[in-house]
């Protein structure tokens, strides 16, 4: 475990005169831990809380500074989904879903084989291929945008779904491969052999032993892939049009009823809609998500 787990777990056998001193120091350390923990939680949650709070506030009270719900209304959500000001949040959500689902599906179907090979089979150049895939995931999207913009202009693909799906594969596929590779490495593959010895056919061993074991890893990777596609902004902002733009682009260009006025409350409502399902999903799968996030890097 870690150094800080130590103080409470094992107290060095000290003589009694020192003991009170140590325990008061321990109490002080524990108070500091709780204060620090509180600071972290507030720092991480307060801005997000502010977004949700503002989303439920009447437009006239946009700049209300109360830290609790005041002037509560659902109007902002209506404005966010209304189409008369040129915003089309429902279409944008649909687009993001289409793009995210397609990218995730392609990356998983292709990546799962590569990850299996990389984690289970010895072959030459494995190290170089892994390095290439890891490097590809850090590749700057801006280096792709210019050639792709010209190519897609030439073949009339600007504003099509495929023009938004293909570039996203460039960073989602490497992420998928190295996350899955890390997960697959940790799997007890010898169970497959054990099942065969116990009389399973290869198909049964795969279906009854490997699939249930691999499913959580594949599912977590799918979530991570979907999130990274869902959050993409740079490429989508250049290659989409009004009818294919994903939520990130839609929210960035949200317009209100007053042309000169930033529709903060409606933007916060839209942001809340885009964020809350994601946050809930991430919190439910917290342990696996963190595992997946760090798997490629430090495990």
């Amino acid at each position: 475990m870690t150094q800080a787990a130590a103080p409470t777990a094992t107290r060095p056998a000290s003589t009694s005169p020192h003991r009170r001193n140590v325990s008061s120091r321990e109490r002080w350390a524990s108070v500091r831990t709780y204060v620090s923990a509180a600071v972290i939680v507030i720092w991480c949650l307060l801005p997000a809380y502010w977004m949700v709070l503002t989303a439920f506030r009447e437009v006239a009270f946009t700049y209300d500074t109360a830290f609790w719900p005041t002037h509560v209304t659902l109007d902002n959500f209506r404005t966010a989904f209304a189409t008369d000001t040129g915003n089309n949040l429902s279409l944008a959500l649909f687009n993001s879903l289409i793009i995210g689902a397609s990218v995730t599906l392609i990356a998983l179907v292709v990546g799962v084989f590569a990850a299996y090979a990389l984690s289970r089979i010895d072959f030459p150049f494995k190290f170089i291929i892994l390095g290439f895939i890891l490097g590809a995931s850090m590749f700057p999207g801006v280096a792709l945008i210019t050639p792709l913009f010209q190519l897609f202009t030439d073949i009339g693909w600007i504003g099509t779904y495929q023009a938004l799906i293909i570039p996203n594969i460039s960073f989602v596929l490497p992420l998928t491969v190295y996350t899955l590779t890390a997960f697959f490495r940790e799997m007890p593959w010898e169970l497959e052999e054990a099942a065969r010895i116990d009389g399973c056919t290869q198909g049964q061993a795969f279906r009854k032993v490997i699939m249930p074991l691999a499913a959580p890893a594949v599912f977590t990777t799918a979530i991570l892939a979907f999130i990274s596609s869902w959050n993409e902004f740079l490429i989508a902002s250049q290659l989409s049009n009004d009818s294919t733009q994903p939520v990130t682009v839609a929210i960035a260009s949200f317009t209100g009823s007053q042309p000169q006025q930033e529709p903060y409350t409606a933007v916060m409502a839209a942001g809340t809609i885009v964020t809350i399902p994601l946050v809930i999903l991430v919190l439910i799968l917290q342990k696996r998500i963190v595992e997946g996030l760090t798997a490629g890097a430090v495990k």
Binding site: A48, T248, V249, I251, G271, V274, T275
Partner: peptide
């Protein structure tokens, strides 16, 4: 995990 899960655009 909350700040991490919020899209950068948002």
């Amino acid at each position: 995990l909350v700040p991490w899960a919020i899209p950068t655009a948002v």
